[in-house]
Amino acid sequence: MTGMGLYNSLNIYLFVGLALLACGILGVIYRRTLVSMLISIELIMNGAGLNLVAFNRFIAPDKAYGMTFTLFIMGIAAAEAAIALAIIILIFRKYRHVEGAQLKEMKD
């Protein structure tokens, strides 16, 4: 370990990211509306970004690749949220609800 203190161990950050992943999976399966599923996917992406920065800090501390990848993840999350919310508004205008289990037809 690179020093004293609880915040200087790698495993704690990995477990926080893992807890975020588990909460995201729980939300994607359990929640009913599409907006809640999108929020849960944001949780999963944040867990991945936290893992990348922790690995960059403890395993490869001389370059900044992990932080740059986390910036890329933020950009991709923003684009994904824009597209997904546009689709959700479209579904709401057509069917007047946003519940994922009732969207059974993909015709016309």
Binding site: T2, I59, P61, K63, M67
Partner: peptide
């Protein structure tokens, strides 16, 4: 969660001791 926790606890990360200067 427990599957990945097992992986995390099992893996041996080689934590470098060089100071972080990014």
């Amino acid at each position: 969660f427990f599957m990945f926790a097992k992986v995390v606890l099992k893996a041996k990360w080689t934590v470098l001791s060089t100071p972080f200067a990014v």
